[in-house]
Design a protein around this nucleic acid. Structure first.
Lengths: 341, 341
DNA sequence: TTTCAAATCGAAAACGTTTTCGAAAACACC
DNA sequence: GGTGTTTTCGAAAACGTTTTCGATTTGAAA
């Protein structure tokens, strides 16, 4: 019922709590004999150290905080998976918070994590976030932060990302090489770097291959909870620009919406209009035709982010200089049915 | 840089830390004047209480632990979502651990959470778990546990579940009423209660409507990370029992596998064989034909579980008697294309 | 002015560890 | 038996709060 404490072991053995503590922690100024007695007694009394007391004394919690915009997205689930696995391997627990893409919430949650004295925090920014003082503040207060996926270039910290611009460039180049001429882009909202970079990649690929960029072929899909946005914009583009032959969508979700509309409207994919997604969500193999997309290594991203963060935590603890790294994970094109005639 | 502490405010104001603490916590034996001074000074010095010290003193961490078998499943993501939202609303943080369906891991993780002194834990059991002493042990040590979704009937604690047997019964009854005669079942593995209950619901529905139960029409799908299982068993059943006209699958994932095979093999759904899923995952609206399924309220489940747990936590704290509740959330049939001719 | 109650404050213990530093004990050597 | 070294241990402070309980001050009533 009541937890046994150091003092219980000490009085059971007729020695001091100091000796017990040292014996359990392997200090060398305790004789082998008493160390053995302590360890055995701890065993039989089922001693479990009180982490809260340890935290207070050592000033570390062996806990990291994670703030993500949403958990019910396949990509973030994968990242979370990687985070949990790597954190556990390195002996850290993880507290999850969800910003729901709201800047104010993200800010409050970061403050909460710092107050809880987590040893570091991992974040992927909300779509609304365009002020980064809360993050800089955290770093200034010696709580290391590493950003992943949705990052801010202007924040000075470690990051793990993919090269969105390059991935998008590759995707569009792929479409061009496949012979598609009039390629539209369904982009995301204007704030997040992801959305901007993918758009820029799209634009540069066109220009690099002598295709004139046409802003009328760019549609904005800023709702990322369902595929309605893709569906509706697909409908719209086919009345406004019926002669397109391919769409590069910012995300698989949008692409799915497009394909669903095409299927219902009798528009053949990829014969009349090809569709290219982004992220390689699970459902991209479920839809028919299966979706060509960019593989975004979420699990690996979670792994690396935790690794970077914990390295930084111990660097700080040992008073070594911290160096910020930016890890760029490779992406690759997954070719499926939606782009091959 | 360095956090301000109670003693900093105290010495800045020339009073004791006792007074500062009391003023900030609204004790009535502090005059309005000094209270105001303290609050203002705390404000300007940017005071944030050290939660670890508070935790040690008050013996509570305002943190709950969650152990789930997997995060990358749509259902658990929804539950997680509900958990995070409700926990935040009630001022608790949540630590997530993932058992990967392994009993040993689940056991170790529960011990870890208790060591970290979480105020309570929420769990959904791994498929392997058939010994519950670790959970009973936790409860005995005064760490409240509430089980959700994958529960153990023999553990005496609060639970939030759906009625799997009834939901399955309803699903199969629906199929029978639609005129399907030879209904197969793709069940899960033999240990988890879910799997057993859904199978029982299937069996009872057949018997209640005068259809003889045939064990040869029951196939086991015990891999729940992809849809290969459903795909392969669909292939198998069509050679072994080509005259079936419907399949009730234990989960949408399995159902998707079935439909994928049928689509590839040119077997018409629902004309030749209808398919009924379970859980209402996002992708069940993505597949073609859209999947008829059982809606399983994950978000709501997370909400209720947290609510139950926190109620129990405060009951224990205030030395009130704890009462264990079992909340059964309603399910409903979502009729889509895969069962309507 | 005296007396008593109410209002206001602070000293100190407590939560359970870790770690420094000094003291005692054991041992070695002459 | 004295001296010096090594082993082994423990007292006490510290981490930053909360809370009990007693002390002092103030004000009111007499």
């Amino acid at each position: 019922m009541n937890d046994t404490k150091l003092i219980d072991i000490a009085s059971a053995l007729g020695i001091s709590v100091t000796t017990v503590s040292k014996a359990l922690k392997g200090y060398t100024d305790i004789s082998k004999a008493t160390r053995a007695r302590v360890i055995e007694m701890a065993e039989t009394m089922n001693y479990i150290p009180n982490s809260v007391a340890v935290n207070l004394r050592t000033n570390e919690t062996k806990t990291i905080g994670v703030i993500i915009p949403a958990t019910v997205h396949h990509f973030f689930s994968s990242v979370l998976n990687g985070i949990l696995e790597e954190a556990e391997k390195r002996g850290y627990l993880v507290i999850i918070l969800q910003s729901n893409e709201k800047y104010e919430l993200e800010k409050k949650q970061l403050a909460l994590l710092i107050q809880k004295r987590v040893d570091g925090v991992l974040m992927s920014l909300s779509n609304e976030t365009d002020d980064f003082t809360h993050i800089n503040e955290a770093i200034r207060k010696n709580t290391p932060v590493v950003l992943f996926d949705k990052i801010a270039k202007r924040v000075d910290c470690s990051k793990v990302v993919i090269n969105d611009a390059k991935a998008a460039y590759d995707a569009v180049t792929y479409l061009i090489n496949k012979g598609f001429k009039k390629i539209a882009h369904f982009r995301g909202s204007y704030v997040p770097q992801n959305s901007i970079d993918r758009f820029l990649g799209y634009k540069r690929a066109l220009e690099a291959h002598g295709i004139e960029y046409d802003s009328k072929l760019v549609y904005v899909c800023d709702n990322n909870t369902d595929f309605e946005d893709g569906y509706e914009n697909a409908q719209k583009i086919m009345t406004e620009n019926p002669d397109i032959d391919a769409i590069f969508a910012i995300t698989d979700l949008v692409a799915i919406g497009i394909i669903k509309y095409f299927n219902e409207a009798g528009i053949k994919t990829p014969e009349q209009v090809a569709v290219f997604g982004f992220s390689n969500w699970f459902m991209s193999t479920v839809i028919s035709p299966k979706l060509t997309t960019i593989d975004q290594p979420g699990f690996e991203m979670g792994h690396q982010a935790v690794s970077l963060l914990i390295d930084e935590i111990v660097d700080i603890k040992e008073h070594r200089p911290v160096t910020h790294q930016i890890i760029e994970l490779p992406t690759r094109i997954i070719e499926r049915e939606s782009t091959v005639k």
